[in-house]
Amino acid sequence: MKGIGLAKGLAVTLKTMTRRATTRQYPDVEPELPPRTKGVIALIEENCTVCMLCARECPDWCIYIDSHKEEVVVPGAARARQRNVLDQFTIDFSLCMYCGICVDSCPFDALHWSPEFEYAEYDVNDLLHGRDRLREWVLTVPAPPAQDANGAPAKEQAAAEKALAAAAAKAAAQAEAGTEDGNGRM
């Protein structure tokens, strides 16, 4: 019969009309973003050792790092040690491709993803986020989600559990030694 397809389509429209809209009015209603969302990259400067891995691994080289060396005199050491001091750490978010290789490759957990995304600018130069802005983002970094129990635990989790076990073993050994010591003295 002619027009049956149209009629069915109209029925769908009618059905949808009676339902609540799925649209969320974005600026008024904030989106719920999962913790892994790649919004912006945060830098915990204290963890950065200026190893330059992130800057080198970045596929479009949008991380700019400057540093200088400082001598640290350690009392008792034969020679003064050298330490890298960060002068500049800038991510150019106008170039960033949001692949997360820098976050992935950082061996010291200095870089983290934050789901924040509202940092559009009128001037492209303002998309250069320096140390201060990258530090501000740290406050918005969420805790990582728990992983599927069927999978192998995350590297960080495994390392933390190992450290915890080692600490517990050490404490137990010390306690044992302590009681023996005490017994010996008594």
Partner: peptide, 25 residues
Amino acid sequence: EEASGGRIHYMYNRVGGLKEEVPLG
């Protein structure tokens, strides 16, 4: 997005598997 963090460009594959385990649930 929940698994990979990306909506369009997931970057969830790595040579040898996936970037990381999927979240719980």
